[in-house]
């Protein structure tokens, strides 16, 4: 028997989508390994979470009722205890911000090989993981010829599990060693409020690293004005302090779904795409024909934004 243990993700009372995707990834892996799929639900309203997570492919759901919010020390101790009890072959975790706060620690503690940010998994006597490198420019496969192993899976790559698994729900007692806790969560804060809500806009003109200098932001502002659009941006523009945080589209910023999204000088890193792929029409202007943004764009111009944007402004200012 080669079993899979998947650890679900939740935050502030809500299960995160990646939890259902982990079930799909875990169920497929368990089938390939001829084993079972167990879920670990750690902290929060574990009973309610467990009931919601009882989807097709889940055999057992272990609940660790300790505290409300995520704490990596609690997660590491709980997963270690579950591992000792269940000795799974595969440990699946989310490649979320919180996943990356405990997955490397538990893999290190248990001495397991770890492969992060999987976009596909297959198992045929050994594990093969598909993952990207060099900012999504290439895909790679890596094999892991040691068991047990640990993998974190990227969000939105697997379908969300549906149906009913008829899983057994088992409360699992872990005596958390409070003296080994080295960090305390003291609160949460929503950031990026302010004057503009980019999630409300019908048309977004979004600017990225290709704009090169702060003083060039004015050029895309003029385009947004000419189009009657709202200005947004990718992460580097906000990191540089050229636009405020409330303009940021992406995983750590806002998720937007406008009618038209015009990406200017944005390469289309996965974190950005996560925030705008639901847009109805996507337009990309970029010098790099290999830029991943063209994979999801409906219309595109391969060209220098400093030539194209002024020409476009002229079209609409006429």
């Amino acid at each position: 028997m080669s079993d899979v243990l998947a650890v679900v993700d939740h935050r502030r009372g809500q299960l995160r989508d990646v939890s259902y995707e982990l079930i799909s990834a875990g169920a497929a892996l368990a089938e390939a390994m001829d084993g079972t799929l167990a879920l670990a639900v750690i902290s929060g309203n574990v009973e309610q979470f467990a009931a919601t997570l009882d989807r097709e492919g889940v055999d057992t759901i272990y609940t660790v009722d300790h505290g409300e919010e995520f704490n990596h020390d609690v997660y590491v101790q709980s997963i270690e205890a579950l591992y000792d009890e269940l000795t799974p072959t595969a440990l699946l975790m989310p490649n979320s911000v919180n996943g990356l706060d405990y997955a490397p620690a538990i893999a290190e503690r248990l001495g397991m090989p770890l492969v992060t940010d999987a976009i596909d998994l297959s198992y045929d006597e050994i594990l093969t993981v598909t993952r990207e490198m060099y900012g999504s420019k290439v895909e790679t496969t890596v094999t892991v010829s040691e068991e047990p192993f640990a993998v974190t899976v990227r969000g939105s790559e697997w379908a969300k599990a549906e149906g009913n698994g008829g899983a057994t729900i088992e409360p699992f007692e872990v005596s958390i060693d409070e003296s080994a806790m080295r960090s305390t969560v003291t609160g949460f804060e929503e950031v990026g409020g302010g004057d503009v809500d980019i999630t409300d806009a019908d048309v977004l003109v979004s600017v990225g690293r290709g704009i090169e200098e702060e003083e060039n932001i004015e050029l895309v502002e003029r385009l947004a004005d000419a189009l009657g659009a709202t200005l947004s941006s990718s992460r580097p523009i906000v990191d540089n302090g050229w636009l405020p945080k409330n303009r940021q589209v992406g995983q750590s910023g806002k998720v937007v779904t406008p009618e038209v999204y015009i990406a200017i000088g944005i390469s289309g890193a996965v974190q950005h795409v996560a925030g705008m792929k639901g847009s109805e029409t996507i337009v990309a202007i970029n010098t790099d024909p290999d830029a991943p943004i063209f994979d999801i764009a409906d219309y595109g111009i391969i060209g220098d934004l400093f030539d194209v944007v002024p020409a476009l402004i002229e079209e609409f200012d006429e």
């Binding site: 990207e132 290439v138 496969t141 890596v142 094999t143 063209f294 994979d295």
Partner: peptide, 23 residues
Amino acid sequence: PIELTDMYEPESESNVELFEGDA
């Protein structure tokens, strides 16, 4: 036990309509 066994350019699922010509 971790070995990189393949590297390739991701298959583009692009349906992009490109506007060509000068700017």
